[in-house]
Protein backbone atom coordinates (compact mmCIF):
# COMPACT_ATOMS: atom_id res chain seq x y z
CA UNK A 1 0.00 0.00 0.00
CA UNK A 2 2.69 2.40 1.09
CA UNK A 3 4.90 1.65 -1.90
CA UNK A 4 1.99 1.96 -4.29
CA UNK A 5 0.88 5.34 -2.95
CA UNK A 6 4.45 6.61 -3.27
CA UNK A 7 4.35 5.48 -6.88
CA UNK A 8 1.03 7.31 -7.27
CA UNK A 9 2.48 10.49 -5.81
CA UNK A 10 5.43 10.16 -8.19
CA UNK A 11 3.04 9.67 -11.11
CA UNK A 12 0.87 12.62 -10.16
CA UNK A 13 3.87 14.89 -9.70
CA UNK A 14 5.24 13.77 -13.07
CA UNK A 15 1.90 14.52 -14.68
CA UNK A 16 1.81 17.95 -13.04
CA UNK A 17 5.26 18.71 -14.43
CA UNK A 18 4.11 17.55 -17.87
CA UNK A 19 1.00 19.73 -17.57
CA UNK A 20 3.06 22.76 -16.56
CA UNK A 21 5.44 22.23 -19.46
CA UNK A 22 2.39 22.01 -21.72
CA UNK A 23 1.08 25.34 -20.42
CA UNK A 24 4.33 27.26 -20.51
CA UNK A 25 5.84 25.98 -23.73
CA UNK A 26 4.67 28.40 -26.41
CA UNK A 27 3.48 27.13 -29.74
CA UNK A 28 5.76 29.74 -31.33
CA UNK A 29 3.34 31.28 -33.78
CA UNK A 30 5.48 34.33 -34.53
CA UNK A 31 5.23 36.20 -37.82
CA UNK A 32 6.41 34.27 -40.90
CA UNK A 33 9.89 35.34 -41.95
CA UNK A 34 10.95 36.87 -38.63
CA UNK A 35 14.68 36.18 -38.21
CA UNK A 36 16.17 35.48 -34.79
CA UNK A 37 19.85 36.50 -34.77
CA UNK A 38 21.73 35.07 -31.83
CA UNK A 39 25.30 34.77 -33.11
CA UNK A 40 26.80 36.66 -30.19
CA UNK A 41 23.89 38.14 -28.15
CA UNK A 42 23.43 35.41 -25.54
CA UNK A 43 27.17 35.17 -24.88
CA UNK A 44 27.35 38.96 -24.46
CA UNK A 45 24.40 39.07 -22.04
CA UNK A 46 22.01 40.75 -24.48
CA UNK A 47 18.63 39.48 -25.69
CA UNK A 48 18.84 37.99 -29.20
CA UNK A 49 17.87 40.25 -32.10
CA UNK A 50 14.55 39.71 -33.87
CA UNK A 51 14.57 41.09 -37.40
CA UNK A 52 11.01 41.58 -38.73
CA UNK A 53 11.24 40.87 -42.47
CA UNK A 54 7.64 42.01 -43.05
CA UNK A 55 8.21 45.45 -41.51
CA UNK A 56 11.21 46.13 -43.73
CA UNK A 57 9.57 44.64 -46.81
CA UNK A 58 6.81 47.25 -46.67
CA UNK A 59 9.50 49.96 -46.88
CA UNK A 60 12.31 48.42 -48.95
CA UNK A 61 12.64 45.87 -51.74
CA UNK A 62 14.73 42.75 -51.13
CA UNK A 63 17.48 44.22 -53.33
CA UNK A 64 18.40 47.09 -50.98
CA UNK A 65 19.64 44.77 -48.24
CA UNK A 66 20.41 41.54 -50.09
CA UNK A 67 22.33 43.13 -52.97
CA UNK A 68 23.42 46.63 -51.89
CA UNK A 69 24.17 45.90 -48.22
CA UNK A 70 25.40 42.35 -48.84
CA UNK A 71 23.13 40.44 -46.45
CA UNK A 72 23.41 36.77 -47.43
CA UNK A 73 20.16 34.85 -47.92
CA UNK A 74 20.79 32.61 -44.93
CA UNK A 75 19.99 33.02 -41.25
CA UNK A 76 23.20 33.00 -39.26
CA UNK A 77 25.17 33.44 -42.49
CA UNK A 78 26.06 37.06 -41.77
CA UNK A 79 28.74 37.93 -39.26
CA UNK A 80 26.98 41.00 -37.84
CA UNK A 81 28.55 42.83 -34.90
CA UNK A 82 27.74 46.19 -33.27
CA UNK A 83 31.15 47.49 -34.35
CA UNK A 84 30.29 46.82 -38.00
CA UNK A 85 26.84 48.38 -37.63
CA UNK A 86 28.32 51.56 -36.13
CA UNK A 87 30.82 51.51 -39.01
CA UNK A 88 27.90 51.66 -41.50
CA UNK A 89 27.85 48.02 -42.52
CA UNK A 90 24.83 45.65 -42.42
CA UNK A 91 21.98 47.28 -40.37
CA UNK A 92 24.16 50.38 -40.12
CA UNK A 93 23.58 51.06 -43.82
CA UNK A 94 20.25 52.61 -42.77
CA UNK A 95 20.22 52.60 -38.95
CA UNK A 96 22.56 55.57 -38.75
CA UNK A 97 20.24 58.37 -37.65
CA UNK A 98 19.74 59.55 -41.25
CA UNK A 99 17.61 56.98 -43.08
CA UNK A 100 16.39 55.19 -39.95
CA UNK A 101 16.94 55.65 -36.21
CA UNK A 102 20.43 55.01 -34.87
CA UNK A 103 21.90 52.32 -32.62
CA UNK A 104 21.07 53.86 -29.23
CA UNK A 105 17.69 52.07 -29.16
CA UNK A 106 19.19 48.75 -28.04
CA UNK A 107 16.05 47.00 -26.87
CA UNK A 108 13.98 47.62 -30.02
CA UNK A 109 16.18 45.10 -31.90
CA UNK A 110 17.48 43.08 -28.94
CA UNK A 111 13.97 42.01 -28.00
CA UNK A 112 13.98 38.19 -28.21
CA UNK A 113 13.52 35.70 -25.40
CA UNK A 114 17.05 34.87 -24.12
CA UNK A 115 18.32 31.54 -25.39
CA UNK A 116 16.27 31.55 -28.64
CA UNK A 117 18.56 30.07 -31.31
CA UNK A 118 19.36 31.75 -34.64
CA UNK A 119 16.60 30.86 -37.11
CA UNK A 120 14.10 32.07 -39.64
CA UNK A 121 10.79 31.71 -37.91
CA UNK A 122 8.36 29.50 -39.82
CA UNK A 123 11.12 28.02 -42.01
CA UNK A 124 9.34 25.13 -43.79
CA UNK A 125 12.58 23.23 -44.46
CA UNK A 126 13.19 22.85 -40.73
CA UNK A 127 10.74 20.00 -40.01
CA UNK A 128 11.88 18.22 -43.18
CA UNK A 129 15.48 17.73 -42.13
CA UNK A 130 15.25 18.72 -38.47
CA UNK A 131 18.20 21.05 -38.74
CA UNK A 132 19.08 23.98 -36.53
CA UNK A 133 19.19 27.20 -38.47
Amino acid sequence: MNRLSIRNIKLVSLMTVALLIGIFSTSGSAEYGDVVINNYSDAEGMRPVIFPHWFHRIRYRCKTCHADLGFKLKSGGNDITMAKIIDGQYCGGCHNGEIAWAVENCDICHSGIPGTPTQVHGDTSKPAINKKR
Partner: peptide, 11 residues
Protein backbone atom coordinates in the same frame (compact mmCIF):
# COMPACT_ATOMS: atom_id res chain seq x y z
CA UNK B 1 4.20 35.74 -30.54
CA UNK B 2 6.38 33.38 -28.48
CA UNK B 3 9.78 34.73 -29.58
CA UNK B 4 9.69 38.34 -28.33
CA UNK B 5 10.46 38.89 -24.65
CA UNK B 6 7.39 40.55 -23.10
CA UNK B 7 9.58 41.81 -20.22
CA UNK B 8 11.73 43.81 -22.63
CA UNK B 9 10.65 47.50 -22.58
CA UNK B 10 11.30 47.84 -26.35
CA UNK B 11 8.88 45.04 -27.23
Amino acid sequence: DGIHDADNPGT
